[in-house]
Simulated scan of single mutants.
Amino acid sequence: MSKPVKTEAELIAMARAELKVHADCPDGIAIAVVRDGESWEFRASAGAETVAKPGYPECVAMLVQIGDHLSKQYDLAE
């Protein structure tokens, strides 16, 4: 049975919503969806000023966990 399909924008919006609930993330974090064969994962990027802010490493770690969870529930639209 196939998983429901979501667009990159929908997945990023879901990730941002979960991050707001679970972590105190600094502004300025960009989230991208990277296809990995049949699966996908989130990638975070930010400028040096944002990376240096408190909470950034925790947000990236939380984003990885959120991506792992969502990738088991949803496929990425072509």
Rank of each mutant, 00 (worst) to 15 (best):
V21K: 10
V64M: 05
G28Q: 10
L63G: 06
D75M: 11
D68L: 14
R16P: 06
V51M: 13
L11P: 00
G47Y: 04
Q65F: 15
I29N: 08
P54C: 10
P57Y: 09
A13L: 06
V34G: 01
S71C: 05
V33F: 05
L11R: 05
Y74N: 01
D27M: 02
A32K: 12
R16T: 13
K72H: 11
I12H: 00
A44I: 03
V64W: 04
A61F: 03
L11E: 02
K72C: 11
A46S: 13
L63R: 01
A61P: 00
S45E: 09
M1V: 13
I29E: 00
L70M: 07
K53H: 09
L76P: 01
R35M: 00
I66R: 05
E10S: 11
C59D: 09
G28D: 02
T50P: 01
K3Y: 00
K6M: 15
I31P: 13
A30W: 01
V33T: 07
A32T: 05
I31V: 14
A48N: 07
E10K: 11
S71H: 08
D36R: 15
H69N: 13
F42E: 06
E49M: 07
D27E: 15
Q65Y: 12
I31S: 05
W40S: 09
V5R: 09
P54N: 14
Y56C: 12
K20Y: 04
D36G: 10
A52V: 01
